[in-house]
Write a protein that binds this DNA or RNA. Structure first.
Lengths: 334, 334
DNA sequence: ATGAAAGCGCTAACAA
DNA sequence: TTGTTAGCGCTTTCAT
């Protein structure tokens, strides 16, 4: 059943059917009624591919993320998809993992579907050399590219991000004010935001007279138990620390487990801070003080920017907003 | 740049270019080489819409779920997308929420993109009346439909699910063996699997001499704190209970928080069990005994079934496998 | 092995 | 207001 069948049954031309389908106002009410009836009777739906071919768009965007089962990325995807859908765009999801080659490959999968725009959720997409970012520039050559939680300057590349450096800096500063003398910092990756966070921690340390700041910054293994074991090893090696600032809530859970298993009272004897304000920060007991980096806001902003861009409007290449410290039970009350 | 441009530059017909593009073996090596070179030079990529129009498929499937930020559904999406991608299918994601009308509406969004198949992740899609499932039958009229964690009999509807009734039954039985005399059951929804789980709990209770089983089954509010408060209220109302079986790990976290805040020692004085074996079951301290319902296996199986179906093979309408109890710290060692 | 040409089902410019 | 028709860019059948 195609537009010709409908036009025949309704006794009109395909142009008229097309007009009805697309809500044109240049159709008489009676004709419209008749056509609509035939469409209904046959439960006809226009062929998306033919339509796309004419319009050169399927009203679909691609969302790339390293791992959609990561709590933080999962929420980003949720908000992106919701906003896009509300603007009647469909979302193609693609989980790329963390390796450059895979990212490139799966980007092609999306590009080969002729999506109207691309969202890269998570700062892990911004590599540290121009050459390794070539794939992003290439993508931006075809469609507008939005980077969430990362920044890259380039034509048709739009970044929406939280000021992670500032947030971690403030969090660390607050830890000093709350009595910490020897914090350590745990991170998972050296992505764009990963590096910013580290900078924020380091600055706060230096400002507060910690001379060996760089020796207090560690890449941690990711699973909760491994993180706890990692801190355990650190302590056994002779490093003394009374607080643990982390780059995400999962690492913070590991730090809490470390403290609990060592009989270190939280927050009196040991303070912990997370990042992302994800569900797991409240699943821990004690609940974790964390940074809300406003994923929802980030996503709605990004989609709204896209809609404006598609509307031909000029949009900012970079949108940054500040995070928010959520005080819970793993840090002292000031 | 289209297939005509390439054909001109290469001095061949579009048919030949098309053959090269699709890896036909009826092209001489020299011609192939020449065409490939021109394609490379112009970094030409064929238009997906035109291609789809001819083939009537874009090699894309739709994934529907209520809420992709739910840890359990997020992992299901992750595995589905991964498997599909490995079979070079792209995934369109659509989060429908829990209301029937929205489900129907967003299903249309996907169907209007002419996807090749549909995955419904989560048993909340199977409603309890034939009429309310009409949308699923309708969808199955257009493309093969896969239901994960739910069951519905119908043409071209394929269900892949864990035996939730059995798993909860065994979990509850084990609780009795581990010294519980008065368990309660907390659930979030009465979806297909929700009802099965309840049945499993009830059966175990009856078998173990609990006469008021139905009065020990409750719909709980969802957030961790609300769940804890709910149990608190239950206790204040005079209900006595020494164990809490739940329909998912989040509820279990709430139950743990309840026990912790009431000074009830886990697991000696109070036992808790979750469901899904999600990340949050290990983020809690003590860590939660839970059921692994094998999401990954479920998803890889479902995708593999789809591939076979697209291959013209006959596949089973219903695939059920058993869950696995993961013993952790919230239940006594037998 | 290669090419010509007929679709695929729609949109939109142009005519009437 | 309605109809005619030329694309959109590809795949594929049928000749050669």
């Amino acid at each position: 059943m195609n537009i010709y069948d409908i036009s025949k049954q309704a006794g009109v031309s395909i142009a008229t059917v097309s007009r009805v389908l697309n809500g044109s106002d240049k159709v008489s009410p009676s004709t419209r009624e008749k056509v609509l009836q035939v469409i209904e009777q046959n439960s006809y739906t226009p062929n998306a591919f033919a339509r796309s071919l004419g319009l050169n768009s399927m009203h679909t965007v691609g969302i790339l993320c390293a791992d959609s089962s990561d709590v933080y990325l999962a929420s980003a995807i949720y908000y992106l998809e919701r906003e896009l859908r509300q603007n009647s765009y469909a979302s193609m999801l693609c989980c790329t993992g963390y390796h450059l080659e895979e990212k490139k490959k799966y980007l092609q999968l999306l590009l080969s579907r002729n999506v109207d725009a691309l969202f890269f959720a998570g700062s892990n997409f911004v590599e540290d050399t121009e050459k390794n970012n070539a794939y992003l520039f290439e993508a931006a050559g075809k469609v507008p590219v939005f980077i969430l939680n990362g920044y890259l300057a380039g034509d048709r590349i739009y970044s929406v991000l939280c000021d992670d450096r500032l947030a971690v800096n403030e969090m660390t500063e607050s830890l000093f004010r709350r009595g910490s003398h020897a914090p350590v910092y745990l991170y998972r990756s050296l992505s764009y935001s990963g590096r910013k966070k580290i900078a924020g921690f380091r600055e706060a340390c230096i400002k507060n007279g910690i001379t060996d700041a760089d020796k207090r910054i560690f890449a941690s293994p990711v699973s909760v138990h491994e993180t706890a074991a990692f801190l355990d090893a650190l302590e056994k090696e002779g490093l003394s620390f009374d607080a643990c600032v982390t780059s995400d809530d999962e690492l913070a859970v590991g730090a809490v487990k470390f403290a609990l298993s060592h009989g270190r009272r939280i927050p009196d004897e040991f303070q912990v801070t997370g990042y992302n304000n994800s569900l797991i920060s409240t699943c821990s007991t004690p609940e974790i003080t964390t940074v809300d980096n406003r994923v929802e806001f980030m996503c709605t902003t990004a989609v709204s920017l896209l809609m404006q861009a598609l509307d031909g409007k000029n949009i900012p290449a970079r949108t940054v907003f500040s995070g928010d410290i959520i005080q819970r039970e793993t840090t002292n009350v000031f």
